[in-house]
Simulated assay, not measured.
Amino acid sequence: MRERLVSQDARRAREFRAFVAGAAGRLLHTATLLTAEAPADNPRARRLLTLSLAHTYACWDRLRGEDPYDHARQYLAGRYARGAWHQYGGFGRARPHPDSPLAVLGPQERLILVLRLYEGVAEEQTAALLGLPVERVRTICDRATATLLHPPRGPAPAVVRARAATP
């Protein structure tokens, strides 16, 4: 009996290590896009990844044919959404790294855009994951895409008035 449990634990650990080897890089990139941190300096993204992988490992035996990547991504997205909600009192603006390509977007816009365009999650699944209507997800995604394609301009340059020449 004991040998069987040891064998099952070893198999579980091997399977999970193989999953992490294949999925951790992409999940970390997803988390980095969500947090809008610099790729080389992303402690919040690394924490999201660690929590997501730990949760996936804890549920590993109960997945039973479910895609572990999808499970980890859902947990990562949900954890990010709850963190942004609690930390910023709703989906307020976080302080993203200025070099992040998604720095101009708010947390909710980043979340929906990353799920839809980077991860390829369908509108219906994204809406169900976030508890939003499909139309709202579509609108936010369209607005975020437009913002990225046509970023807001900075303030207009100050107008300098020429002095009248004195005769």
Score class of each variant (00 low, 15 high):
Gly92Ile: 10
Arg110Cys: 01
Ala77Gln: 04
Pro133Gln: 13
Arg143Lys: 13
Arg116Gly: 04
Tyr57His: 13
Val159Ala: 09
Tyr69His: 12
Glu66Phe: 15
Arg95His: 10
Arg44Ser: 03
Tyr80Met: 11
Phe91Ile: 04
Val137Ala: 02
His97Thr: 01
Arg79Leu: 05
Arg62Leu: 15
Leu129Val: 01
Ala58Ser: 12
Ala146Met: 12
Leu149Ile: 08
Tyr69Phe: 14
Leu149Val: 11
Thr50Glu: 11
Ile140Pro: 07
Ala156Lys: 07
Gln125Cys: 05
Leu76Glu: 01
Pro107Asp: 11
Pro151Gly: 08
Gln74Tyr: 12
Pro155Asn: 08
His71Arg: 15
Pro68Cys: 10
Arg93Lys: 11
Gln108Val: 14
Pro155Leu: 11
Asn42Trp: 00
Arg73Gly: 00
Leu102Met: 02
Ala72Gly: 04
Leu49Asp: 00
Gly120Leu: 02
Ala128Gly: 05
Ile112Gly: 00
Leu49Ser: 01
Ala94Ser: 12
Ala54Lys: 06
Gln74Thr: 06
Ala122Phe: 02
His71Trp: 13
Asp99Cys: 07
Leu63Trp: 03
Arg138Trp: 03
Asn42Arg: 09
Gln125Tyr: 07
Gln108Gly: 07
Leu48Cys: 03
Leu76Lys: 09
Leu53Val: 04
Gly83Pro: 09
Thr56Pro: 00
Pro133Cys: 11
Leu117Val: 10
Pro68Ala: 07
Leu49Val: 06
Tyr118Leu: 06
Leu130Gln: 02
Asp67Phe: 06
Gly92Val: 10
Gln87Leu: 13
Glu119Lys: 05
Thr147Pro: 09
Phe91Met: 04
Leu115Gly: 03
Thr145Asn: 12
Ala146Tyr: 14
Ala103Leu: 04
Tyr69Arg: 13
Leu130Cys: 06
Pro157Ser: 08
Pro152Trp: 01
Gly154Ala: 14
Ala45Gly: 08
Tyr57Asp: 08
Ala72Gln: 01
His150Phe: 11
Gln74Pro: 00
Arg138Pro: 00
Ala58Asn: 11
Ala144Phe: 04
Gly154Ile: 05
Cys141Met: 03
Leu113Asn: 02
Ala144Gln: 01
Glu119Trp: 05
Arg143Tyr: 04
Leu53Ser: 02
Gly92Tyr: 06
Gly106Ala: 09
Leu49Trp: 01
Glu109Pro: 00
Val114Gln: 02
Val121Ala: 03
Leu63Glu: 08
Gly78Val: 03
Glu135Ile: 15
Arg44Lys: 10
Leu51Phe: 09
Arg116Glu: 01
Arg82Gly: 13
Gly83Asp: 15
Thr139Arg: 14
Asp70Met: 08
Arg138Met: 06
Pro68Trp: 07
Asp142Lys: 02
His55Thr: 05
Pro107Leu: 10
Arg46Met: 05
Ala128Asp: 03
Arg153Glu: 15
Val134Pro: 00
Trp60Ser: 08
Ala146Phe: 15
Glu109Ile: 15
Arg46Tyr: 00
Trp85Lys: 04
Gly78Asn: 04
Tyr88Met: 11
Val104Glu: 05
Val134Thr: 06
Arg143Leu: 07
Tyr118Gln: 04
Ala146Leu: 15
Gly131Trp: 03
Gly78His: 03
Pro133Val: 14
Gly106Asp: 10
Asp67Asn: 15
Val114Tyr: 09
Cys141His: 08
Arg95Trp: 14
Arg110Gln: 03
